[in-house]
Simulated scan of single mutants.
Amino acid sequence: MHFHILGAGAIGLWTGYHLRRHGHRVTLLLRSEEAVAAFRQLNSIRLVAAHDGSGRVSEATDVEAEVATRIRSPIDRLMVTTKAHQTSDAFADVHRWLTEHSSVILLQNGMGVREQLLERYYQATAPMPRFAHGITSMGCMRAGVNEVVHTGNGLFCFGPASDEQAEQASDNLRGTLVALHELALDPDYPSPVDAATIHVHMLAKLAVNACINPVTALLGCSNGQLYEQPYGRSMLTDICSEVARLLRVATSGTSPPAAPFHFPPFTAAQKATFDDAALLQRVLAVCGQTAGNRSSMLVDIEAGRTTEIDFINGYLVRLGQALNCATPLNSLLQKLVHTRTSISNG
């Protein structure tokens, strides 16, 4: 199979490495001729194993790279690993090379990217590819144009974007999802999951990020520093309670959200993920387990970059508006992060 990867950051390189090691053809879609020239000096992806303390270095060779604007042939399988807020513009370079038989796999933080792409590119008669979502909590860090450091294991699974997409899935999409799970990076998920399962994982990760990332970004602290402070834990509890209440309404099935917030039916066990106590336990566990980490939102602010706040807390605010469910804390966090970003950028 031939996979194009849009977004050669840590997750893009890490996924490309494993796909190539499993015999698939991999083409990284980069922003500039300079980036392509730098990558082509080696034409490989180096992975450093730091998660097991070995520091072992291995390579996936014969990895291709091309400037996204130079693509001139149909794309069968597109992995999208760009930052959520960068995806819509980056997609402009490749969407014309996607057909109704193509598969697009979104592997990103936050939610709402697929809906944004559908609104911008597929309102008229353009052939629409089949979409699927991926989620990972693997720890990895980009260490160079072709090097990624694997810092920790975690969740790695994929599923169709909706029940409708699952029913209409082409052989391309089915084969793509199977190939991704054959990488065997997560023994708990040896095969693709259904739309409800992937959405539960996405919503749970969104909830964790919505509680931790903006607070650490605003306070300029590590996850552990937030976790250790009584007032910090109190803030996490309050934010988590608001998020849990919203997600219980969203997943209840009793009042389907207005477009574009369409979720598949969830089982009782899946809905229980968003009980107050269960969700808070998840948030505090992640905060404690990643005590030494500095959130990507904090790193982005310090580097003067746009954050993913609109696809994390902002997504929850929009969902709350669609459900007539108030989200004052998430709305405040979204505004504060935007203000902090503007101040940091002068």
Rank of each mutant, 00 (worst) to 15 (best):
H2P: 02
L180H: 11
V337P: 03
T339Y: 00
V178C: 07
T69P: 00
Q229N: 14
V36H: 09
L47F: 02
H4K: 09
A285P: 02
N153S: 14
F311P: 01
L206A: 08
E100I: 03
H199N: 12
V36G: 07
L333T: 02
A35R: 14
L30T: 05
L106H: 12
I301G: 02
I343T: 07
A84C: 09
M297L: 10
A132C: 13
M235F: 14
D275M: 03
R31A: 13
D275K: 04
N43T: 06
Q116Y: 01
Y231N: 11
E147H: 07
F156A: 10
A124M: 06
Y121S: 06
G346L: 11
I301V: 13
V36L: 10
P265I: 04
T176V: 15
I312W: 05
C325Q: 15
W14K: 06
G152F: 07
L280Y: 00
A124I: 00
K335C: 07
R21M: 08
T306Y: 02
T254L: 13
R294T: 12
R174A: 05
F131C: 04
S344P: 00
V145C: 10
G232W: 07
T273H: 13
V286P: 07
V286W: 02
D52Y: 05
A10C: 09
Y189C: 12
K83L: 08
G314H: 01
N330Q: 08
T99H: 01
C211W: 02
L218K: 02
A92G: 08
T306W: 00
T290A: 05
V283C: 05
R245T: 13
P160A: 08
Q334L: 12
R340V: 09
P129F: 11
V67D: 08
Y122G: 04
F39K: 06
G232S: 12
D52L: 01
V208H: 00
E115D: 14
F91E: 03
G12I: 04
D76I: 00
A250L: 05
E308C: 03
S44V: 03
M235P: 05
M297P: 05
D62S: 11
A259R: 15
D163W: 01
A90R: 12
P190C: 09
G112M: 06
R142W: 00
N330K: 03
E59C: 11
S58Y: 01
R233E: 09
E302P: 05
R46T: 14
S102M: 06
P74Y: 00
G253V: 05
V36K: 14
E34N: 08
W97G: 09
V149R: 15
L206F: 08
